[in-house]
Design a binder for these strands. Structure first.
Lengths: 203, 203
DNA sequence: CGGCATCGATACATGGTGTCACCTCCACGA
DNA sequence: TCGTGGAGGTGACACCATGTATCGATGCCG
């Protein structure tokens, strides 16, 4: 389902079962973390929740942090695919930027209900930022850079900084209630990127 | 240093010592968390690092999460005081908003070096948002509301949403390197709040 | 059909957890 | 000044989580 990872004809029964178990484990751990807080999750609890032996669990993951990290990684990959699709479906740099921004805001918004937002931050352990996440930031940066080159986004700031601004600002969507509010957030956030900035001060 | 909290003549030896120990404990725990990750911090480690008995530690805090939470709370109180001061020192709603925004960005920026950023998110455990933090958001909302009332900030969005946008966007400062970059971030972020928004689409 | 490898569970040594009873020492009143 | 109350600090204890080693079971491959 998430793509074959070994040469064809070799991913039949064993590997698929292992992936199934991995999925069960990660979801069980995430469920526990959202319910009782990430600090209190133990390997024993995860094993019980997943319905496997505790020793077996250690053959899949070394500790709780790795499990949560794997869960997060899987979802980031999904989001990356979705954003790529949204970007490619839109025409023109402005539309593409809007599509990616709106898509990212939606993703953040959906995190509100089905899980503790702060868990995401937890898995961002120090330097352990995942490869998929770098790709995600890279996607945003590319889209932005294109928009800057076409003159629809202000060029007076480094693209990396604008991308950082964009991602953080849109992350506020996770605290919003309605979809309308998310739409307003996207509009406001993109407004700051307008090529007609900066403006003369009114004071 | 942090202001007397009991009626005068009553904060002599015992209470001050207790506060001293609390401070030592919280800083020891934060140090461990930044070094080895928050998931691996144990009460035993904290007790050893703080130089007290493990049983004594339980007379101050029930678990690791509470310790980290207390550390964070103390700093939020400091930040709140600083932002209040900045706001009161500035004249006019526009200047006040700029001062508060710049101050908050600086605070986020300073978190980069001396500690893992994600720890902050960790202590935001679910519904356990601290009172001081609510006050901080309230401060931002008040400043924004005043600016909206005076016509220097766009009025086509709810103030709570704009405050959320502002705080999240400025939070990007923690990933920036230079002070100049932080200044650019503040400018870009505040640009979206300009009262001359929304603009006609160019497409 | 039998070797082979991997999966899964019980067993055990180690270390963290939470909580006593007990000790020490400051604060206050006679 | 001194004794007593009460609060802080500590060692000890029982319990649980951890990580690993060993063993039986199951399915793939020649």
């Amino acid at each position: 389902m998430y793509g074959a990872r070994v040469p064809p004809l070799w991913t039949n029964t064993v590997a698929s079962h292992r992936e199934e178990v991995r999925r069960t484990i990660t979801e069980a751990a995430w469920s526990l973390a959202t319910r009782h807080g990430p600090m209190s999750v133990t390997m024993s609890q995860v094993a019980t929740e997943a319905g496997i032996g505790r020793a077996t669990l250690y053959k899949y993951f070394p500790d709780v942090e790795s499990i949560l990290h794997a869960y997060h990684e899987r979802h980031v990959v999904e989001h990356l695919a979705r954003l790529s699709q949204l970007r490619d479906a839109a025409v023109g740099p402005k539309r593409r930027l809007e599509a990616v921004a709106a898509g990212y805001a939606q993703i953040c918004h959906h995190r509100t209900g089905h899980g503790n937002v702060d868990l995401v931050a937890l898995v961002h352990q120090a330097d352990r930022v995942s490869e998929a996440e770098k790709q995600l930031v890279a996607l945003v940066e590319e889209t932005l850079a294109d928009a800057v080159a076409k003159g629809v986004v202000r060029a007076d700031n480094p693209v990396e900084e604008l991308a950082l601004y964009l991602v953080h600002a849109l992350g506020a969507a996770q605290n919003l209630r309605s979809k309308a509010a998310v739409q307003r957030l996207v509009t406001v956030t993109l407004g700051a990127l307008d090529h007609r900035h900066p403006r003369p001060a009114t004071d």
